[in-house]
Structures are given as structure tokens and as C-alpha cells.
Design a protein around this nucleic acid. Structure first.
Lengths: 348, 348
DNA sequence: GTGAAAGCGCTAACAT
DNA sequence: ATGTTAGCGCTTTCAC
């Protein structure tokens, strides 16, 4: 039996659809206990499940939020998805997970699809500097929380941004190295195209300046002009490390744009016949599961995922359920340095 | 404007809703080019998007398949999700991704939710030996493809199973080691609770027997009675390696239940002051992204993800669109050994 | 305490 | 080539 409807239940219980609906929507108190039991029995017996499409069509509401991530293949996003789902579930929401593959067009199509699916709130993890491709939907009332992307001047008024303070994060990482005594540092990244990357680099240079070190020639030159996926980022790190360590005055400490990249850097260090920590300290960013599993375990900057996920859902919930379109705001959480064994004082 | 409906478009274009609907549903040819343009212009101008709930309610169809995975935090599943989505997209389907956290109850709830959302086909990645918790839905017409789980005798008649041949896979891995000359092998795994694990162990012992080796004491004794998550699996591997290598007659080759576990084993080998490949060969299973990134790169058994994803969608599609409930079937794809640097001939 | 009836936005016969 | 109409399953006034 594909289609057990509320009518069938009503008939089986000898009541009207209204009564069944009342029971379904928490108005059970206004009916005789006996009636209630009859209805409940009928629901059970027939295996009735309300049709969400009909329900949604009728009410215009939907207890679902969308989550658009650049790539579910990346553990960072997979982990975030889990936390967001957990946070959503506690608030009575479901999460619809979409994978943009970093394609702006797919991103837009997904958000549009979610909107026309009745989803009123979306957590958008976009690497794009401009969110104008979803502006039309926001104008129509779609609530968007941009995650892992700091607010921009030309963002929509109602946009909520949640991210860590990337500059602080990489400052933490960099200062960790300078405090250990490193004087010659390098920053390894793919193209500094995204806001995050720029911020991380900014934190890196800020920390250097604070330590009285020159920022010249600290950005790995191969970092510009290229765009990399997640796997390629590791390869990039590997190449960067090899090249950097082959120079006259090689760095003793390397700050990588993220953990994938840092893992690659570690590989490159070994390729160069050197040892991570002993010869070259490496610090990553994100604290993916593998950071702790790697050999040596990676010193990295952890994003407070559970808090961020909770905040994202809270924002969405209050805006979707609350009155009117709230003003935009930006929430910058403080990341945390996790010191493991890939960083140590420089040799000699 | 939240609610631009087909009526608004019709009115704006000076036509009836039918005409708009016709255009929307690929019946554009049966109207005057001029009419068509007027309608298209109106749609564009009003920013109209069809309401999926209404559409679905009306047609009873839904171009969405569900994907239930044990954990999106695990790269293995993240990767599969990407391939499945790609395969679905080419067939005009969307994928709804759900995360069961290996909780049978969540698994059931998700599948029920998908069903009441109008989803007619689900790819279920369940580690459970019995799928009876989704049987009622299958009886109602829900099509299920069980992924990464070999068919069982008490499965529903219409169940489709897609997985690799796990026994063949670990036989491949094990024979690789025996061919290299290893005579003392060990198999490291968490509890042999799932079908897959049992199959992999079976392949392991089969390969040993084929090589004329004893299977006694080859299963790491700590492997029984415990259930492990993904992170813990690595820790388990590490512990297993340390314990195994501390015995009188330590193995020179270790086959791990999966890559996470293998990574842990590698760590354990180092903990014991030994070197992977040189002293102990390690082979994993799954070929996660990190297998290639690790140092040394991990020899492992690759699952043909794209093919499996395509097959899953093809099965679902033909069953959802085709007539009647198809008979169940089981598709066992052949895995492939990927030889990297974590395996080598034994010392001396 | 319970029921009748209208309508959410859309599609697909069935007219014309 | 285009329009009229009925109804998908549900919720929610408004009656009784």
C-alpha cells in the first residue's frame, strides 16, 4: 500500500480527518481519550505517515534547513555536517545536505532548489567572495547563514556570517612557532583567492611583525595564480616544501593554509631527506580527524565546530520563526591552537 | 515576494496556467513561439520557481533519491556520496544525504522520513546484518539498494545489494603479501560483527590456505567483543600493531580491515621502533584519499566507487520508473589492489 | 468534542 | 494552440 492517507485513517477509526489531524498536530487534549486511542490504533495498524509534500503545501512551512558545502569528500565539511545535523535535530529541524563541488553555478542551483522545496533557511559554505548569486532569493525571504566566510561590505543586509577569526587563528599558529624560537618562516597556500586565505595570511604576517621578523619572501611564490581542490592541496604542500627546503636559506617553520596542505608539506619535508619537527616545524589549520592520526601528529588550529553549528542553527531558527527579516550580523568565534608533535624548537 | 505562483505567471503573460505548465514540462513545441516567449519572459521577470511540494503532491513522483550513510565525517562515505550524486544528476535525480551515525533507529527514522517525503528510492549504507527495520516500507513500495553489504538469505525479495566482493578483495591483499614472501601474517580488525568484516577475514584465511600457510593465531585476539567508530579504529590498529610486534614470533605482514585501521597499524609499527615496509608490510582496504597521502603511501584495496554509484542509481531508476516491483539481485564488483610503498618483501 | 468544507500550487485529462 | 477543471493530502477556520 503506497498511499495511506489521513482519510483512510479517519475512516478506519470512525472519525473525521480533522480529528486525526488534530491528534497529529498536538491538539490531542481537546478530544476524548477513547477517540484518541482509536485514532492512534488506526495510525499504527495502517502504518500511516503524513505526506510531507501535502503538509508543506498547506502550511507553507518546512522544518528543513539546507546545508551547502564545497565538498562532502572533505572530512572538514563532513564533520561540520554532522555537527550541524545534530544541532538542527535538537531544534526539531532536518538538514538537507548539498554538495556544490565549489562550482558557483551548482551552488546557486542548489540554493534555488532548496528555496523552491520550501526550505526557508540555508547554511551556505561558499568560498566565493561575492554572494550576489543568491541575492534574489534573499530578497524573497530566504534566510542565509554564510559559514566559514567573513562578512563583506557588499553582502546583503540580512546576511548572517559565522566563521572563526582566521587572522587570529593563523596568528596563534605563527606565534607558536616564533615563540619556539623559529626566525625563518614560510606560509604555504594555494592562490590567496578566498577571504579566508587572505585573512590567514594576514594573521601570519601580523605575527611575524609582532615578533620583529621580516615578512619578505615568506609567502611561497608558487601560491599565486592557481586554484586547487582538496586532494591537490596536499600535492601543492608537498611541492612547496620541496622547493622551499632546496633554497639557500630554508625556513625552519612552515604554516600551511590547512591540514591537507600541511600533510603534504610533511611529505615534502621527508622527500627532502629531513624530519618533521626535528628539522622543520609544520603547523596546519582546521584539525581534521587525520591531523591527530598522522605521524607525527599535526600541530594545528582547531575550529570550534559544535559551537559554530549550534550558532548557525540558532540564527536560522530565530529568523525563520521570528518576525520580519532580521538585520545581518557577523559572528567570529575564536579558534584554538592544538599543539601536537609536528612543531618543536628549531635545531641548534 | 515569497509566493510567485504559476497563476501569477499566467496572468502576467496573458495565458492560462496550463500553458505555463506545458512550457515547464517540456511541451513547449505545442505552442506558438510567440506565446512561449511571452511566458518565458514572465517567468524570468517574476523570478518564478515551481513549488516542488505542489508538483510532487500532484504527480506523486519525486526526482529525488535518498542516501543514508553511517557517517559523513568518514571520507569513504563522503567520497561515495559525491559519486552517487554525480551519477544521480546525470539521470536527472537529486540526492538527499542522511547521516545515520550507525544508529539503527536513526537509520529507520531517516528512511521513513524519506518515504513520507515522496522519495521512492533509497541507497542504504547500513552495517546492520538485518534490514528488517525497513521491511515495512519496502512492502509499501520503497525501493532500496543496500550498499556495501552483501545480500543475506532473510533479505526482502526486492532488495538490491551492491558491494564489492570483500572476500576477493582481502584475498588480493593477502596474496600480495604471500607472493612477496611473507609467511607470518596477521589480520587486524574490530569485532567481526558485520558481514563485510567476516567476508574480509574469510578472504584472508582463504589466501593463507592457498599459500599453504596456517591460519592459526592470525586473527588479532583483541578483535572480538568490541565495536569501534572510525577514529577509534585507527587507535585499535595502533594498539594491535604494538601488541603483535611485541610477541615472540611477530608477523611480517599485516592486513588491516580498512585504511583507517591500517594507518593506525603504521603508527603502531613506528611506536615499536620498526619501519613500515622494511620491517613490517601493511595493507589496508578502501583506498581513502589519505592512503596515497600517507608516508609511506599505503598499499590498499580500492573499491570501484564510480561504477558502484552508477550501478546503484541505474538500479533505483529502473525500479522506480519501471513497471512493478523488480526481483532482488546482488551485484558484486571486483575490487582492485593498489600497490604502493607500505608493502615490500620481508627482511632477509 | 467533532465534522464539513475550502484551498495551498500544481498537472493532466478533457474540452474547445 | 490554448483554456477549463478536478483533485493530489493535508490543515484550519467555522459550524454544530
Amino acid at each position: 500500500m503506497a498511499g495511506v492517507t489521513i482519510q483512510h485513517v479517519a475512516q478506519a477509526a470512525g472519525v473525521s480527518p480533522t480529528t486525526v489531524s488534530n491528534l497529529l498536530n498536538g491538539r490531542a487534549n481537546q478530544m476524548l481519550p477513547e477517540t484518541r486511542q482509536r485514532v492512534e490504533a488506526a495510525i499504527e495498524r495502517l502504518g500511516y505517515r503524513p505526506n510531507r509534500a501535502a503538509r508543506h503545501l498547506r502550511t507553507g512551512r518546512s522544518r528543513t534547513v539546507g546545508l551547502v558545502v564545497p565538498s562532502v569528500g572533505n572530512p572538514f565539511w563532513g564533520t561540520f555536517a554532522r555537527y550541524l545535523e545534530a544541532a538542527a535535530l535538537t531544534e526539531g529541524y532536518n538538514v538537507l545536505l548539498c554538495n556544490s563541488e565549489r562550482d558557483p553555478d551548482r551552488e546557486r542551483r542548489y540554493v534555488e532548489e532548496l528555496w523552491s522545496d520550501g526550505v526557508q533557511g540555508v547554511v551556505l559554505c561558499s568560498s566565493l567572495p561575492s554572494l550576489e548569486h543568491v541575492m534574489p532569493l534573499m530578497d524573497r525571504g530566504l534566510q542565509i547563514v554564510a559559514f566559514d566566510r567573513a562578512a563583506q561590505a557588499n553582502d546583503a543586509d540580512s546576511l548572517v556570517s559565522i566563521s572563526i577569526d582566521n587572522a587570529v587563528g593563523s596568528q596563534l599558529a605563527t606565534t607558536h612557532l616564533t615563540s619556539l624560537g623559529h626566525r625563518r618562516l614560510a606560509f604555504v597556500s594555494g592562490a590567496l583567492g578566498s577571504i579566508n586565505r587572505k585573512e590567514r595570511y594576514r594573521g601570519f604576517t601580523a605575527a611575524l611583525e609582532q615578533a620583529g621578523l621580516s615578512t619578505e619572501n615568506t609567502l611561497w611564490p608558487g601560491a599565486s595564480g592557481e586554484q586547487f581542490g582538496d586532494v591537490e592541496t596536499a600535492e601543492l604542500g608537498r611541492r612547496a616544501a620541496r622547493e622551499l627546503l632546496a633554497t639557500d636559506d630554508p625556513p625552519t617553520g612552515i604554516v600551511a593554509i590547512n591540514d591537507m596542505c600541511a600533510l603534504g608539506v610533511c611529505r615534502g619535508v621527508r622527500d627532502a631527506g629531513l624530519e618533521v619537527a626535528k628539522d622543520v616545524s609544520v603547523v596546519g589549520f582546521d584539525d581534521i580527524v587525520l591531523a591527530d592520526l598522522y605521524d607525527p601528529p599535526l600541530t594545528t588550529v582547531r575550529q570550534p565546530m559544535p559551537e559554530m553549528a549550534k550558532a548557525a542553527i540558532a540564527e536560522l531558527k530565530s529568523r525563520v520563526e521570528g518576525p520580519g527579516t532580521g538585520q545581518g550580523r557577523s559572528l567570529l568565534l575564536r579558534p584554538e591552537l592544538v599543539v601536537r608533535q609536528s612543531s618543536a624548537p628549531p635545531r641548534g
